[in-house]
Design a protein around this nucleic acid. Sequence first.
DNA 1: ACCTGAACACCGTTCAAGT
DNA 2: ACCTGAACACCGTTCAAGT
Lengths: 216, 216
Amino acid sequence: MAGRSALNRGAYVEAALEVIAQVGVDKLSMRNVASRLRVSPMAMYKHFPTKDDLLAASLEEFIARANVVPDTTLPWEQWVEHAAAGMYEALCRELSWVPLLGSLRVGEQAITVTEAFVARLREAGFTVEQALQAYFAVIQVVVGAVCLRSSLDARPTAEPGSSGEDSRTAKTDNRSLQAADSIPGELRSFLKRDQIAIGLPLIIDALRVKLEEART
Amino acid sequence: MAGRSALNRGAYVEAALEVIAQVGVDKLSMRNVASRLRVSPMAMYKHFPTKDDLLAASLEEFIARANVVPDTTLPWEQWVEHAAAGMYEALCRELSWVPLLGSLRVGEQAITVTEAFVARLREAGFTVEQALQAYFAVIQVVVGAVCLRSSLDARPTAEPGSSGEDSRTAKTDNRSLQAADSIPGELRSFLKRDQIAIGLPLIIDALRVKLEEART
DNA sequence: ACCTGAACACCGTTCAAGT
DNA sequence: ACCTGAACACCGTTCAAGT
């Protein structure tokens, strides 16, 4: 009874993140977020003029909570590996964010991460140019790794919660890699490797060479 | 009047690719593909039990038509750059494929590309292991590049064609990078660079070093 | 075999109205 | 200021039926 009404942005974002954790970003709807708060779907449109606005705010919070910036004083290679692993794991936990990464607004939290990354690499001796290239190369490899990884495991499929089963998805659950047995064995075992261990080491190797070249 | 009926899979895939070219993968619907062929939406379910099946078949055809494997006898670095550029450009033309790359079945065409890639690198002196790592690293960087690029330009938004304006998307057209002016200038100009030119050179550098190490 | 119509259970969003 | 109900124009998919 104490001040339950007058919901603010934070409450909606919180509810959105809960919905996402349970059913994935792609099945989040204005209606199911609202019903979790026992509120009319229309109530949200005062705070978020569009579903994309709600998603952008939720992504900001998701990035903030993922907490991918290592605060230790590791050597730069390990610092980068650590940060990349953090991003990779966070995105793997919520695969459904990936498609939206490019299409939502670049927010405060994303910029904070960028700046931390660049600062650490500058400290290690890279130029601003090089540090930015390194940062985006790492992001590319992380996003790519998550995209490819997603072909290997189905969605979590937590229990539907309240309303009836979603008849729309029932049929598509055991999709993906149906054609797997026609893939050459070596390719298959490669697909099963931790995807982040494929591209990232190459990026770091190249950066190390660049740094050594600059030192001589 | 000459054999227009008895539509086969190919006709549906063709129509799907036309719809995708006009409005993007994400707005493809069973209904709009069917109506393009002046057929009931239900007619498709005999050939494609699920929308995902239609999309998988269309992606196969898209990959085949993209024709990313260079048949010239370029040095391996340029061969890889050429192939990566082909993938990047094809995906940029149809950004909306990206989210589905991981979630649809791995098909015949995708495997053909993989094999061509591995064969070319083997020829250049890499081991199978290295060639596969190189291939997936390149794919990761390409997919990542496309994902990040998508934050910079809006969808093509071809004219709506037949039925009324889609009121659902009207509001979200000028999304993306709203917060751009709060991003440090250097970061902004970096985002405007050709994304494929960020990660790929680092990957190729690393591969070159690997090859030279093996030669000595 | 291939296609149809009607129906079900969903969407995002608008609009006029309530407190 | 914040919330509501009803409505609009869409979805994917099922089912019973037609030829």
